[in-house]
């Protein structure tokens, strides 16, 4: 039963995606909508990304400091660990998982609500390709905004580690700064951006799909929003694993 439902969804998704990439009816309208979506996703998620990144950076610094206490590992390694943890793992993955909850649920309920209130039918009657007009700007908005948020998350993670350890006397500022500047591998930043773009596509497509094909009433709309988050999270984790394997070969 589960696999049948999955195959049905997958088949419908494959048939739907080409509609999303049809030529826009009016470039200006699509451009305006893309700017609005980018703003909503980006600015609307700043606060949550700020809080999460600072605290994850802080916790990483404190935990590693605790685990390395009494070992021969030099203290400046803390800065190095916090930086690379942020860039490789927490900034793209944790941020995207959180954004799947915030942005993904929002997108699914927005489109699903439009479907239920016949807004999508009304646009279709006008001759608008709703698969493109309602979905493409959100996908582009996510692909622009999420890598920016991930960049910010990586920087704030390192800042969080600093705030939690240097002013509290856990270790010296010079050690932390030295750690941040040590063993830097530019490829890790490339990995971070590849992950951010892939995760943005997952959040965008899954959430739009769940909203666009919602049936029934408010209970089904709630279920669709939940499904958007759960499916996005699972796919992000699977993609994270696959990208980790592919990009570190």
């Amino acid at each position: 039963m589960f696999s049948l439902g999955f195959l049905e969804d997958f088949g419908r998704f494959l048939l739907w995606v080409p509609q999303v990439f049809k030529k826009p009816e009016n470039w200006t309208m699509y451009y305006k909508e893309t700017i609005r979506q980018t703003y909503d996703i980006g600015i609307g998620s700043l606060f949550i990304v700020f809080i999460i990144s600072i605290f994850i950076g802080a916790v990483t610094a404190i935990q590693f400091s605790y685990q390395m206490a009494g070992t021969l590992i030099p203290p400046y390694y803390i800065g190095y660990i916090v930086r690379d943890m942020s860039i490789i793992a927490s900034a793209p993955t944790i941020t995207s998982i959180v954004l799947a909850g915030k942005v993904g649920a929002n997108i699914a309920s927005e489109i699903g609500g439009m479907k239920q209130k016949e807004h999508i039918d009304a646009m279709e009657i006008m001759g608008v390709n709703t698969s493109a007009y309602l979905v493409l700007p959100k996908i582009i908005g996510a692909v622009i905004a999420i890598p920016m948020l991930v960049t910010l998350a990586a920087l704030l993670g390192s800042l969080g580690g600093y705030i939690a350890s240097v002013p509290t006397g856990l270790f010296q500022q010079s050690d932390y700064i030295t750690g941040l500047q040590s063993f830097f591998i530019p490829w890790n930043v490339v990995m971070m951006y590849v992950k951010a773009v892939v995760f943005a596509l997952i959040i965008g497509f899954v959430s739009c799909y769940q909203g666009y094909f919602v049936k029934g009433g408010s209970i089904e709309l709630g279920e669709a929003s939940t499904r958007a988050v759960v499916v996005s999270d699972i796919l992000i984790l699977i993609a994270d694993y696959l990208l980790a394997v592919l990009l570190t070969v």
Binding site: E124, I125, M126, G127, V128
Partner: peptide, 9 residues
């Protein structure tokens, strides 16, 4: 969609 340009609902 082309036909629908001539439709109001």
């Amino acid at each position: 969609r082309e036909i629908r340009m001539q439709v109001g609902m």
